[in-house]
Write a protein that binds this DNA or RNA. Sequence first.
DNA 1: TAGCTTAAGTCAAGCGACTGATTTAAAATC
DNA 2: GATTTTAAATCAGTCGCTTGACTTAAGCTA
Lengths: 214, 214
Amino acid sequence: MTGKTVRAEQVSATRELILVAAERLFAEHGVFAVSNRQVSEAAGQGNNTAVGYHFGTKADLVRAIARKHAKQIERLRLRMVAEIGEPADVRDWVSCLVRPVTDHLAALGNPTWFARFGAQAMTDPALREIMVEESLTSPSLQQIIDGLNRCLPSLPAEVRAEREDMARQLMVHMCAERERALADGTPTPRSSWHGAANGLIDALVGLWLAPVVS
Amino acid sequence: MTGKTVRAEQVSATRELILVAAERLFAEHGVFAVSNRQVSEAAGQGNNTAVGYHFGTKADLVRAIARKHAKQIERLRLRMVAEIGEPADVRDWVSCLVRPVTDHLAALGNPTWFARFGAQAMTDPALREIMVEESLTSPSLQQIIDGLNRCLPSLPAEVRAEREDMARQLMVHMCAERERALADGTPTPRSSWHGAANGLIDALVGLWLAPVVS
DNA sequence: TAGCTTAAGTCAAGCGACTGATTTAAAATC
DNA sequence: GATTTTAAATCAGTCGCTTGACTTAAGCTA
């Protein structure tokens, strides 16, 4: 952030204002229920083309939001993977999957919007690919998958692929669910993001270790 | 369907045309990326107000689609719950949760659109409540939850609530994932909806039986 | 001063909602 | 049972409004 010129500082401040405003509006009203104009206005920009100028289309804006968070989560995940002890068991690897996300959300304070935004974007036919590109193409993520596979050598390949998907879906949508409840004031099963992570980790360990019966 | 007048027959045919067209367009392009006009046109209605006339707002249309499928799934689920043997174990109840949904999708043939539509609607802030009302307020569903709880008496209430959520999220989004892959021609872990259900059931049994560690 | 950023205003296109006319099955009347 | 009346469904077109995209001008930093 430092080391920039005054000009560049102002520009990235403007961009950040837009990103935050967009994330909030998208989470609260839906990505496609909010126009670029409304985002620009909410970001305090007099110009109705501010989003277009700084980011381009709505898809580009979504990408920028995703990238921002993915970067921060990836930092936490790399650190955690680096610190993992040997021998690592399924629970260790699952924790590496879950904690960076929940820790990131916890660090954002309250309220947060990213989990709800992410869940929407992941289910939209036009935005899904963008989200996958930005958040699933991560070296540390592959490391975790590999580590998990080493723990579960007897699991058939198709079951592994399936359970990877399940783990991902569960993380994305359970975080969104909790964030929604927090925003609505609805009671949550756990009192903190850390607790929610505990619940997720327990469940995911059970899921990965589940015998293949049928 | 029979026993109706000719007039009523035509009307419900028109409504069905609109529902099917909407479901397809929503799944392929996104619920809010498709206008009511486009739906009317795709349904072969000359009038751009056809959706408004028959259903009302877009939210009402979404509700009608959800209700249609929920009804059919509920029929399958009631039958399966009625046929469940005693004593029923976790796997029996989980099967009652999963099979009606996958069987319904299998019965729809190929391609299907409902799973992708449902996943979108479930994550949208404006549509979520509608979907919950239409598909989660079902007597048979409560029976299954109760049965599951009887199998797992030692599970803390908050963990139970949490894992109910997880099971629901997994069903919705894994079905959508598979439907997407089928539509794209991407390889799927399983060759049939029945096989996908097997994978889901194995995983969910493991998830429910997972020890509460942390 | 040159170039990037913000502001202000304009534009055609598409939106949901509305209107009145037309069609036609169904109900009422004879 | 034939004829008239009614009301639901469909059609065709219009309305005000919002949208993303565009143009032009002003502001400010390097």
